[in-house]
């Protein structure tokens, strides 16, 4: 470090500002004012949110009073309709079972027809011979 650097360092170190009470008081006042404003803002926000929630609840209550019964009745009807549609829907298992039953019942007739035809054919062949 040369002489000038030392001089510079000394000069910088030598010049602290004297304490000024007015400066501290001004900052304390500004901080207190900001805190007060923040508190008021928070309180206003809370009141605003509460008022908005109350308005929403009141509006919902009014709507329910006007249309609630109708809405509930329509909803109940829709539920019943859906339930009916679901329970009345054709079952794939049932349809398959019915088809197999029909096929089983018809099989006897088919065998009888087939047997008669075969017998007829044998009798005709014998008559030709």
């Amino acid at each position: 470090m040369n002489d000038f650097d030392a001089l510079l360092k000394r000069s910088f170190a030598e010049a602290p500002e004297p304490a000024d009470d007015g400066f501290s008081v001004q900052i304390s006042r500004a901080v207190a004012h900001r805190e007060k404003t923040a508190k008021v803002r928070n309180a206003a926000y809370t009141v605003g949110m509460a008022a908005a929630a109350a308005a929403v609840c009141y509006g919902a209550y009014g709507l329910m009073g006007l249309y609630g019964q109708e809405v509930l009745a329509t909803a109940g009807l829709e539920v019943a309709r859906v339930h009916g549609a679901l329970s009345g829907a054709p079952s794939v298992g049932g349809a398959a079972q019915g088809m197999l039953q029909s096929f089983g019942a018809g099989l006897t007739q088919m065998l009888l027809v087939f047997g008669a035809l075969a017998g007829g054919a044998v009798a005709y062949r014998a008559a030709q011979d």
Partner: peptide, 24 residues
């Protein structure tokens, strides 16, 4: 912890340095 009096004391102690820094 938002103690304004403590901050005020801190300002009192540090203002000389802070003002000197900004004055330069």
């Amino acid at each position: 912890a938002r103690d304004q009096a403590a901050f005020g004391e801190l300002v009192k102690r540090r203002q000389g340095w802070a003002r000197a820094l900004l004055r330069r």
